[in-house]
Design a protein around this nucleic acid. Structure first.
Lengths: 217, 217
DNA sequence: TAAAATATTTAGGCAAATCTAAATATTTAT
DNA sequence: ATAAATATTTAGATTTGCCTAAATATTTTA
């Protein structure tokens, strides 16, 4: 698989999770920041390679083979993100662009040994699960902070939005994975929430609360 | 720079060390395992990018800019080789192909932090010097084992041939970097040498002796 | 349900990096 | 010094992945 083909598989994998149906040409084009006509070309190619099914005008869906391949790329991406944060002092908002390159390195031994070196991490720096060697993805039970109620308590376990802007915002407010958060109040008017984190009171916007995943406890 | 352009710069850099003169189209074609006509195309492109000088029929020579770029790629290659051997349990005959991919990852921070993480290694697993941040390459004084005389003693510091076959041969005979070797005898007839390593006597071919670098002591 | 809006595909082209075959330049050897 | 051998370049194709513009299919809406 070429670099470009791998990126298509990854994009389609992510889109399939959201929609369940076949993934539309336009959706892929948007995700890949390319044109619909380019997507059509690629879908034909990938379908010939048996990694996805494609009928004109009916979108695409990965075959088992394609899904397995996509999961391998995602596994590599997330392991490299762990490596960058834990061993090379990267901040969690810096890792994505570099991991986008590293995920395409081809070497089974490399990724097996990297996993071992990192002591088999379960999640990446954003809280997303790392697929294991066999492609199993263990999802953690998690809900959005925005769906929690007054007096609920939880542990921060992931982010929905991995943009640098949001991650830096969390850093600034000392919100990090593993931290305990208690909901003190919710404002009907604008969905903002007041929370207790490290014994400090903090008010965050509805948008922020809608991008932070929590494990209730 | 594209992946292919980076590989051309690296190849030309290595060839320039050997010949001093402008590097010929054919020499590059052989090093890159491609056709001379492809090389001509690329030389024109690289010369427009000012990383080398090229006059038809007169070969190529890197500009300062091109040389600096090549050195950066080589620095990355060798640092990744160290990482693979020291942290991920790779053998020294397995690292090259993977480092060929890793050397093209673009991130200044990545390579700076990797260097720090590895505690600023001076040489890669084959004994080749790792260029520093500023592009300085500190060459170690070294000679070929084949040029040593009876009763000379030295420390094994590098290999000339990095092929998997040769490296496995060295492993099998327990010859490794850092080991002390004493020359017991040389055979005029076929240039084979008898050496003492770890108190064991060993006879190696002239070819092998011609691919092992030693520091006299 | 037919027209309008939207989505998708097709057709034709482009740039990068490669190739083969032919043309041209340089070097070597007699 | 000239013919033969070798090296290099040019010309013309090919593949991959992308593009724009036009054609066609599907969906929405009035």
């Amino acid at each position: 698989m070429t670099l470009s083909e791998e990126n298509y598989l990854k994009a389609i994998f992510h889109l399939e999770k959201k929609s369940k149906k076949g993934v539309s040409t336009n959706a892929i084009a948007e995700e890949m920041e390319t044109k619909a006509s380019s997507v059509t070309d690629m879908l034909k190619k990938l379908s010939e390679k048996k990694v996805l099914q494609y009928k004109p005008y009916q979108g695409a869906s990965l075959t088992k083979e394609g899904r397995d391949y996509a999961i391998k790329v995602i596994r590599k991406h997330r392991l490299w993100e762990c490596f960058l944060v834990e061993k090379l002092n990267f901040n969690w908002d810096e890792v994505h662009v570099v991991a986008e390159q590293l995920e395409h390195i081809k070497s089974d031994k490399l990724i097996r040994e990297l996993d071992k070196f990192l002591e088999f991490p379960k999640t990446d720096p954003h809280g997303d699960p790392i697929p294991d060697q066999d492609g199993n993805i263990f999802m953690v039970e998690k809900i959005l902070l925005s769906s929690m109620q007054q007096n609920d308590k939880g542990i921060c376990v992931g982010v929905n939005d991995s943009s640098s802007a949001f991650l830096k915002y969390l850093d600034k407010n000392e919100i990090a994975l593993g931290k305990t958060i208690e909901v003190i109040g919710k404002e009907e008017f604008d969905d903002s929430m007041t929370i207790l984190i490290k014994d400090k009171k903090l008010t965050i916007s509805g948008l922020a609360a809608n991008n932070l995943y929590m494990k209730v406890c």
